[in-house]
Design a protein around this nucleic acid. Structure first.
Lengths: 343, 343
DNA sequence: GTGAAAGCGCTAACAC
DNA sequence: GTGTTAGCGCTTTCAC
């Protein structure tokens, strides 16, 4: 009966969880006071603070950040986009990013774009829809449409692991072209003259390779033998590619690989084929993964401080969230060639 | 003037982004109709659908999932907890989990608990506060307090990569003890008699090791030499540990390593020391990472289908979200020993 | 230092 | 098939 009585309708959902209202009622204060006790404890009297804390402990209250985010337009969520989590390259960055953000009360949301960039659209929509306080891109955003949407969203964006003259917003990375040139000069300085290069089919690796080739040309060397393997790179493709490269040109005396895993494949294949490293063949990797230093022979490789990239990105976002302007917005963290036994 | 007039106050925040209201107004329909056009297009007339879609395209509207989640108590967010993202073991699981969830419109939120379990409390709070539709734990929840909080939250939980008689909720994993026993029996069947074991200091690795030792005892073998190295495991610690183990007992003829990376260290050290694998020493890894098959010698290792674990977990959560009861709630996905040249 | 009122942007529950 | 209404749980604005 009384189906049309407005009061009768109030049989509404509710999640069932303890709310701030419940806590406030138990503590004998207004909801807003309980809110202040949770978020800005120093703006509340000792007595109230104690009562609210007791009520929270008693009820096991956990604030609903969805509601908080909606009301305050600060979700305390940061999104990170990686090509795939299976590739080891960005792990250190994601790791340090997660940690640095957690210290500031932010949670990381992870999205995989795929190396081919399919699903990037759906991913961007999913991310922007959650109104994160920041978006960290591993690599720069290449699609004009993606750029536009990110810009339109008004969310702070940090592009990483690359350099560009016109970033969407903030940037922390290094020059892949410079890496390619530096490695070419390095190998040349070691007396190597017949270069090969082995790269995964992702855009940044190809940029390193192109610069490596160009630098070899500038140094007056014969054309670089190159092999492109599918990304993500594997030990297996490293082995196979070296076999191919050597078959095509047995006089090679140096190989630059686009990942340490490829380099490990090259080292393995060289050993199996009886090619001595470094005597006959110098091998350079990229990434300086943990294992590189302890291989036999130890691997010369390009070191990128992935942890720094993550921490810097986190700092950029936190500063922006606190309203501070971040200057400079572009940081080149550089790289270094770690010389070991393989060259 | 009119400071006390309620109407004058209505100068409120607003995020500035396009809302469903804006879209509805532009399309000339009620907000709820626009909502239906977005979420359940088949319950809306063709004409309305077209108008709403046009309005969305024109405005670049992206639904606010925070608001949607609050209203519907479905956040379309799933949280995953890993010890650390830097360890390669769970990558495949996280990868497939992300993909499988994305197909159903869910986004993954990633949290790192740390191998020591510090911060687990803060992490749980951060996760539960976001009211995810599911929580995936890599490993089982060991702390009683954590269990209680997860249970109290009412959120579907999938524990993975392990087996237990009393899971919090759902479970997909395998028996670590059974792995240890199987490897011991396997090595014994290969004629090996002097076992060593090398494990990272995480709880699951130690359980495999304990079962390995016990099985060796049952087989009538002399006590297993063991070495515990810090987690996450590295090639370096594998090399160092093998050197120690061999120094203590040069008669070893088999080593069971708790990760493929440790095994790679063992292979490397053995080669450097002139110990022949598999002739003098059999080596077994754990994880069957991509590189294991292509090492020289190829590594015998325990294969876990991490991708399946992720997909199964995703399915459990999606089914639960759709209100379907999931039976059985416990899945043992098993493991296999992949025999290669190192044994 | 504390509180009342009014929404953040969306959807569930009804009605027609 | 479409609209009206009333919140989801929180925080902002304003007032005391």
């Amino acid at each position: 009966m009384a189906t049309t009585d407005p009061a009768a309708r109030r049989t509404r959902r509710r999640s069932g969880a303890v709310t701030l209202h419940d806590v406030a009622k138990l503590a004998g204060v207004a909801p807003i006071t309980a809110s202040r006790a949770v978020n800005t404890p120093d703006r509340v009297s000792e007595a109230v603070l104690a009562k609210v804390r007791a009520a929270i402990a008693r009820t096991g209250y956990v604030p609903n950040r969805l509601a908080g985010g909606l009301a305050s337009t600060r979700s305390r969520l940061v999104a990170a986009v990686v090509p795939t989590i299976s590739g080891p390259v960005f792990l250190e960055t994601v790791h340090s990013l997660t940690e640095a953000l957690a210290e500031h009360g932010y949670q990381l949301m992870l999205g995989q774009a795929g190396y081919d960039g399919t699903r990037e659209d759906a991913l961007l929509e999913a991310i922007i829809g959650r109104r994160p306080d920041g978006i960290v891109l591993t690599g720069i955003m290449r699609s004009a449409d993606g750029k536009r949407r990110l810009l339109a969203s008004g969310i702070p964006v940090v592009e990483t692991w690359d350099l560009t003259a016109n970033p969407i917003d903030m940037l922390v990375g290094f020059s892949h072209a410079e890496v390619g040139r530096a490695v070419a000069r390095f190998l040349h300085s070691k007396g190597r003259r017949r270069f090969a290069a082995l790269a995964g089919s992702d855009e940044r690796a190809r940029r390193r390779l192109a610069a490596f080739e160009a630098a070899a040309r500038t140094l007056g060397l014969s054309p670089v033998s190159t092999a492109i393997v599918p990304a993500p790179t594997t030990l297996k493709s490293g082995r196979a590619a070296l076999a191919d490269l050597l078959a095509a040109d047995p006089s090679l005396d140096a190989v630059f690989c686009s990942s340490d895993l490829l380099a490990l494949g090259v080292l393995t294949e060289a050993r199996v084929c009886g090619v001595k490293v470094p005597e006959q063949l110098a091998v350079v990797g990229f990434g300086d993964q943990e294992f590189a230093a302890d291989l036999d022979p130890a691997l010369t490789t390009v070191h990128i401080d992935g942890g720094s990239i993550g921490r810097q990105a986190a700092q950029f976002i936190c500063e922006r969230a606190e309203g501070r302007t971040v200057e400079p917005r572009i940081v080149d963290i550089g790289f270094s060639i770690v010389e070991r036994a393989s060259t």
